[in-house]
Design a protein around this nucleic acid. Structure first.
Lengths: 196, 196
DNA sequence: GTCTATAGGTTGATAGAC
DNA sequence: GTCTATCAACCTATAGAC
């Protein structure tokens, strides 16, 4: 990121990143609507007004958070589109996607799922996240696939979220969650490609 | 309408149920925090104050909604505890649980997952839902099972939620979602009991 | 059971000094 | 970039008439 390309102009990127980090923690803990701008600013030791210097409004904060996820998905779609068709492509793709999960991405996904209303509103003005995932499904199932197959394929990729969900009240750590997601993703992929 | 069983005393049970139905719809649409008591009351054609006649506060509304789920889980745990140990018990239990899903229960689960913060707060004063599910896992895995196996078992039961999640931006209907959940649950159960 | 009126508080956001 | 001061809008919840 910092790419100091000669000009010493520092536009406050560090503060921005710090805000995002704190906001992500609070949003996941108390939800988007349950977290006030005051909560965020005081956790950072600043005032609300300072927050509004860095972000236009509260919604832009969570939007910035989600932009990071979108970039990762774009990268994955690019990789997938470049793969030649193969019987085990589904399995390989699922494992690649699931294995790419990091604790921070886990937190981001958890945020997205625990706050669907705001996410839906966010998608309104730039809905590329879901529809990009649609492309993943298209690439893997073909257009002739029925809704049941498409849904199951989607679930194979969503095992990270599913594992996250299942681990909610548990003392399972990020590594165990990702491991379980891997296993589940493989099992679902195998059930979809009977021949193995 | 309404079960006039001799005594004409009508305690307003119908209104209560109607409130719950409308509240469930609004909570799932806009989230718990995003739905005001005013939203609920005006959707019912009444005022906020009337709402407070039927429920102590906003939180009690969502708590009542969740009570229904708890009852269903209790019933399932009772059934499971009465089953003799068998190799295919996991598969049978998963299918029974998943098949019991109705569109309304789907909506309830969706609500629970989309509003984790309030759910966590709710559990504080009577946490029986998660811990009861712990008992399901205990009954099926035994105490010697590792965290990975326990997590995967949990995921097998959570396929309804997972299918719901995967179907979010999709045009999949309740029946397709439940069907996909069945398939996924069976696949996960099979992957956990190698012998079949 | 439902209403009007209102209390008492929080929210997201802006203006403008420094 | 951060602050103080302020705003209108909204919120949950209650009091009390009918």
């Amino acid at each position: 990121m910092s790419t100091s390309t000669g000009s010493e102009r520092r536009t406050g990127t560090e503060t921005r990143a710090e805000i995002l980090r704190v906001a992500l923690r609070l949003f996941t803990e108390k939800g988007f609507e349950g977290t006030s701008t005051r909560d965020i600013s005081s956790a950072l030791g600043m005032t609300k007004s300072s927050l509004y210097y860095h972000f236009k409004n509260k919604e832009e904060i969570v939007a910035s958070l989600m932009d990071e996820r979108r970039d990762e998905l774009d990268e994955f779609v690019e990789w997938l589109a470049a793969q030649p068709p193969a019987p085990d492509l589904l399995r390989r793709a699922v494992l690649r996607w699931v294995s790419g999960a990091t604790p921070e991405r886990l937190q981001l996904m958890s945020l997205a799922h625990a706050n669907q209303p705001i996410m839906r509103r966010l998608m309104g003005s730039g809905q590329e996240l879901r529809s990009n995932f649609d492309r993943v499904i298209d690439l893997l199932t073909g257009e002739a696939a029925g809704p049941r197959e498409r849904l199951l394929t989607r679930m194979a990729f969503d095992t990270v979220s599913a594992a996250l969900l299942a681990a909610l009240g548990t003392d399972a750590g990020p590594d165990e969650i990702i491991a379980a997601a891997r296993d589940a993703g493989a099992a679902l992929a195998d059930s979809l490609t009977p021949g193995g």
